[in-house]
Design a protein around this nucleic acid. Structure first.
Lengths: 135, 135
DNA sequence: GCTACATCCTCTAGCTACTAGAGGAGCAAG
DNA sequence: CTTGCTCCTCTAGTAGCTAGAGGATGTAGC
């Protein structure tokens, strides 16, 4: 009953760029919409919902593959929720690892930078650390 | 005087993959080496050093652009060291930001996952959070 | 009806930093 | 002489878009 929305409207509502919406369609993350007589894509409210779901998941750092699975699960309300849980937990673990990695990195970079060098490159601690081949 | 090394040897010494070495050559990060009669690349110890420098910097998360600058600076021992310092500090700041970002993310993911769900998708907290369009 | 201007369309190429693979030549050891 | 390793070039793929060319259509004001 409701008029189909053009892609720009969907873009504003879901806060997903037009080009990104077309991209999602291309990789099968978003269903191929009907077209108007003038070959324009026509969307409905369900498409907006789906896009918002995707955007939320992307904001939380899920990759498109995980999102694909989560979307599939979201469509099966009677299924057990274990799988969705597992996906989220896996991602959480990955984020934790990345944080640990970056924290270790930061420590090294701080050690590298801490000595306020005002000398020449020849005595530059930063360059020195990079050039040293120990470890 | 020393024999030129084949790419495989350099690869082992610097712990940089053969394909990556060729890639670095292609983008101008590594000088184009002389070739042997049979068209093989011939490297010397300086190339190994340069590659180790690059690898160290990569391990510390510098991007190739920053590394390009750092390499240039490393070749000018009389220059002041400020610029190298600035590059390192900028990178350090970026790493710090990334950590903060991921830490916030982790908090959200933890909140999402904490409720051990054993129900159906219909009651799944993970899916629910993703589907909710507030904020 | 006419004129802007915004929006839509498709298609291609670019971004980062590599990696993988095809298809072929050369070299060293047994 | 054959086996197997290393080397060569070139192309395409990875993730997740983004930007731009070049063209058609819709809409608002006059």
């Amino acid at each position: 009953m409701s008029q189909p929305m053009p892609i720009g409207t969907v873009s504003r509502l879901a806060r997903v760029k037009v080009a990104t919406i077309r991209y999602y369609e291309g990789i099968g993350l978003l269903p191929v919409p009907a077209r108007t007589g003038a070959n324009r894509r026509g969307y409905d409210i369900m498409d907006v919902r789906r896009l918002k779901f995707i955007r939320h998941a992307r904001d939380l750092g899920f990759d498109l593959n995980a999102i694909r699975q989560l979307l599939a699960l979201a469509g099966l309300p009677e299924q057990p929720c274990d799988e969705a849980d597992a996906i989220a937990r896996t991602h959480l673990a990955a984020v934790g690892q990345k944080i640990d990695q970056l924290t270790a990195l930061r420590k090294e970079l701080e050690a590298m930078v801490e000595r306020g060098t005002h000398g020449r490159i020849a005595e530059c601690h930063v360059i020195e650390v990079l050039a040293n081949s120990d470890e």
